[in-house]
């Protein structure tokens, strides 16, 4: 900030040169980060867009095919299946993954004791490598001798085929994803909750507000911004779901194939067509970029 203030003080004919001179150190500090971004983020991004208009097998020079890849996408019935499934996953993930961490955060926040313990307990699954979480749940879901059906059976409750049942497959994936990712959201909610001035609750309590009324009239309005930010972040994250369907139901399951799984299929296991995969990636990019733009717009206003 000091650098910017200093540059504003110098206004004159050599303004630009001075500004660069004054900011040189800042640019140097930025250089490493910018270079990393350029190499690992922007270059692949631009390359991906170019690839989506090309036929490329990675050996002979790629050649331009115009919109052929996009036409092929729209002709593939799986294209629509994958988008429908992805939206279904995102929707379900919002129902579970968005509301559950909020409730958990409020409950943990209400604890007088052991708050630290619960915070860690909720966050632990985030620290597991995602594939480990998924393999663990694969065992839970085993319709034969899995944990869930064993427990349900012992309690004389109806069991389920979980990932193998067309009706339950998607919900099963969402449950895994929620369990493994809710820690991050919970911690952010908890941080948000801790910034709410305690006077507001005290005043509400003096007015005789019930627990529900305190949540409804104090917590929710105060958390508005965090809730909105997490909503958009979660949409962007869940639309890129890959590892749960890939490991639990595979790349050919019509009930759970998602956009990312289809991209993987196009590129690696079925079509070996990198241009087609890149075209699908570009479409996903456009959708996610739209959500990100909304997010940036909203957060800018909030600043």
């Amino acid at each position: 900030m000091a650098v910017i203030t200093a540059s504003r003080a110098h206004r004159g004919p050599n303004r630009l040169r001075r500004r660069i001179g004054d900011n040189l150190r800042a640019y140097l500090f930025l250089a490493a980060g910018l270079a990393s971004f350029a190499l690992f983020s922007w270059y692949p991004l631009v390359k991906g867009v170019i690839l989506s208009f090309q036929q490329d097998n990675l050996v002979v020079p790629p050649y331009w095919v115009g919109l052929d890849n996009f036409r092929a996408l729209f002709a593939d019935p799986l294209f629509f299946t994958a988008w429908r499934n992805t939206l279904e996953f995102t929707g379900l993930a919002l129902v579970f993954g968005y509301a559950v961490p909020f409730v958990v955060a409020i409950v943990i926040n209400e604890f007088r004791h052991l708050k630290g313990y619960f915070r860690i307990a909720v966050y632990l699954p985030v620290m597991l490598p995602p594939i480990v979480s998924v393999l663990l749940w694969q065992y839970f879901y085993d319709p034969g001798s899995g944990l869930f059906n064993s427990v349900l059976g012992a309690l004389h409750l109806p069991t389920s085929d979980w990932t193998q049942s067309p009706r339950m497959a998607m919900i099963s994936l969402v449950l895994v994803s929620t369990w493994s990712n809710m820690g991050g959201a919970t911690i952010m909610y908890l941080a948000g909750l801790s910034t709410i001035p305690s006077e507001l609750y005290e005043a509400a309590e003096l007015d005789g507000a019930s627990v529900w009324q305190r949540v409804r009239y104090v917590t929710l309005p105060q958390m508005r911004f965090v809730l909105l930010a997490l909503l958009l972040l979660q949409i962007v994250a869940t639309m890129q779901v890959f590892i749960e369907p890939y490991q639990l139901t595979g790349t050919t399951n019509e009930e759970t194939i998602t956009v990312m799984v289809l991209i993987y299929r196009y590129a690696f296991t079925v079509n070996n067509d990198f241009g087609l995969a890149a075209a699908m990636s570009v479409l996903l990019f456009v959708v996610l970029a739209a959500f990100s733009a909304v997010y940036l717009r909203l957060t800018r206003n909030a600043d």
């Binding site: 690992f40 991004l45 990636s281 996610l288 957060t299």
Partner: peptide, 21 residues
């Protein structure tokens, strides 16, 4: 805000970048 940009950029890099492996 920067974190969001970072998240977005990384997410997109993953989405687009995986096809350029």
């Amino acid at each position: 805000m920067n974190r969001a940009k970072l998240g977005k950029a990384l997410g997109l890099a993953l989405a687009v970048g995986m096809t350029t492996a």
